[in-house]
Design a protein around this nucleic acid. Sequence first.
DNA 1: CTTGGTTTTGTATACGTATTCAAACAGGTT
DNA 2: AACCTGTTTGAATACGTATACAAAACCAAG
Lengths: 337, 337
Amino acid sequence: MSSNRVTSIDVAKLAGVSQAAVSRVFTPGASVSPRIVEKVRLAADRLGYRPNRLARSLNTGRSGIIGLAIGYLENQFYPELLQQLSASLQTNGYHVLVFMTGNPDEDVDKVVAEILDYQVDGLIAASVGMSSQLARRAQAAGVPVVLLNRSQDDSTMSSVTSDNHAGGRKVADFLVAGGHRRIGYIAGWESASTQRDREAGFREGLAAHGVGLWARARGEFEREAAADAARELFSTGNRPDAVFVANDHMAFPVMDVLRHEFGLRIPQDVSVVGYDDAPPANWPSYDLTTVRQDRPSMVAACVKIILAGIENRDSPPQRIAIDGPIVIRGSARIPPR
Amino acid sequence: MSSNRVTSIDVAKLAGVSQAAVSRVFTPGASVSPRIVEKVRLAADRLGYRPNRLARSLNTGRSGIIGLAIGYLENQFYPELLQQLSASLQTNGYHVLVFMTGNPDEDVDKVVAEILDYQVDGLIAASVGMSSQLARRAQAAGVPVVLLNRSQDDSTMSSVTSDNHAGGRKVADFLVAGGHRRIGYIAGWESASTQRDREAGFREGLAAHGVGLWARARGEFEREAAADAARELFSTGNRPDAVFVANDHMAFPVMDVLRHEFGLRIPQDVSVVGYDDAPPANWPSYDLTTVRQDRPSMVAACVKIILAGIENRDSPPQRIAIDGPIVIRGSARIPPR
DNA sequence: CTTGGTTTTGTATACGTATTCAAACAGGTT
DNA sequence: AACCTGTTTGAATACGTATACAAAACCAAG
């Protein structure tokens, strides 16, 4: 019932020491004698005192807050990422302040401003739409930025992705080895680096085997658009016998359309391969062959980079592409060995 | 390149006014003449000034931060909730600081302490494991708390849930009307209020129709445990002809087990009903009949309560149960009308 | 012009903590 | 006992902003 605003001064009084002493007890690496530590700890516990992190940030210039700009969580890959990211930062003494950047029409300036208002120590941008502008602005303001699961031509910006080019290539190798010759591609949002890199690697791989791309449609990284894309590809007389879908999130509705609307059997009639290894990929109903994005490694790299950026304001930008295996499940014909 | 720490004092100097004047310009409802507003705005824009929210919180006692304690995001219902919640709070000038409370073994005290360190204006607890203790502690510290999608016997705590009791009841009515008499139930984590209420409503409904519960197994709200539970229920000679699964997240693996391990057809051989209306419920592969939890309404209620609690420190606790319809899809036999 | 009331402004202070600086202290050497 | 060195300590100040208070400016009415 007592007005519960207990400050370092209260503790100092009770312990019979100066406020500075209290502060030092709670500042790792400060110079205090064991006797004072003892007294202060006792008083602090009695009063239930804990340092106010926001007040502390005024002096230290560190808030312990990492901004996370994220677009949408429908794609199951992202919640998993967020979960691991948050947990990892938490063990490092940081916490995640979430900024939803849903509609890209929204004012970028507004979001950037809000983020900076909170004096975030760093920014992780996993947003689809406006990550590039947003990140540039934040970086210009002196905040370390890491692009997660997207990258940027601008090489001054750190980024962590899977090796999308190599991944696309692996899919091409796999499908061609499986004997496919009429291979379709369902693209993601065209401006995304993930989309571009995956497609480029894929096409290169096909070309290396002397196979051309049979058909292409745009799925925009969205369920509905992907379903439409599947309908488009398979409504023609000369259907693909395999499809590479730019991410799992789109591959699921694509599989549903092929099975339930076209009555096709997977993989007997058509092979489907995705990208990400999102959780439903190993649900029996989908059992999707896909390129794994190694979430733990991506998270670890991301955290490492952002912490480095905080420690050393001008640590050089890093662009990390983590290799991931193609996970062979039942949605695509398996090449004879 | 200039050391980018621009403060209200810098602005004041440039504008030729006092620091207080600058502060007032950025404080809604403060008394400033249009002339000063003009001058300050100009100077602020020139320098790119924005008030430091953390510093501001020292005076106002408001951080604009809402803590969100959440356990795990595998259950697709939660990411959607988080997304809407965050967006809604954002439009109200608040932001979400995420606290992952993954392993319930973890020290509750530690998490509570961390949350309070950030001077959060409110706490939303959607955590499975330790929400009760955690919430109690936070509330004791004078922070408004809302339990989201779980409630508490303790009626001093606000909570927002769907009407789980009524929902369970609806499922019973529906399955009995569908002609089922051997009805099984796969339970969630036994300590969760959602689990208890859904089961209670369900049993009551069955009893009202003179039908007993045929079988029961524990799924713990986890995929693997739910799959095991399904195996347990269907390995016996006398199988259920319908199952109510305590949430969709468990219903998906249950359907997969029934189809792929037992070769059962849904709904011809067995009906399955879930709870939540998580996104995959309307994916064609599952097409799951389920009780909808009205996310937008739940989020709206939650935000309303927490904001009320912030405005008025002792606004009375509210316990809201939002009714949701049973969404009839293809996973359960449809009663003749 | 005064006067009285209202609005606007600046000065000073507070918010809760970290840190600089100089004073106080401890401990060992001669 | 006197000296030096290295560690602890408290007083004072800084961090960036909001606000109580009093001085100043304004405005309408007398």
